[in-house]
């Protein structure tokens, strides 16, 4: 899975397969992180809080 493991060979197969995997994982990870951070900032700025007020709890 990582370079350095004894199964790892520096060949096209490993680089292509693992490259695609880590590429997909980083897109997912970065997308999720972006959303989390943006949401945290927006929440801090008070955005979206009107949804919590006014309606009250039943």
């Amino acid at each position: 899975m990582f370079p350095g493991f004894f199964e790892w060979i520096w060949d096209g197969g490993h680089m292509l397969f693992m490259g695609a995997l880590w590429y997909a994982l980083s897109i997912i990870g970065m997308g999720l992180t972006f959303c989390l951070i943006k949401s945290a900032i927006e929440t801090q700025q008070g955005k979206g809080s009107h949804h919590g007020d006014g309606h009250g709890h039943h």
């Binding site: 989390l36 943006k38 949401s39 945290a40 929440t43 949804h51 919590g52």
Partner: peptide, 12 residues
Amino acid sequence: NKVPFFHNFAHN
């Protein structure tokens, strides 16, 4: 959805 963070997170 009334929780601001959840609302923002879902939106984002």
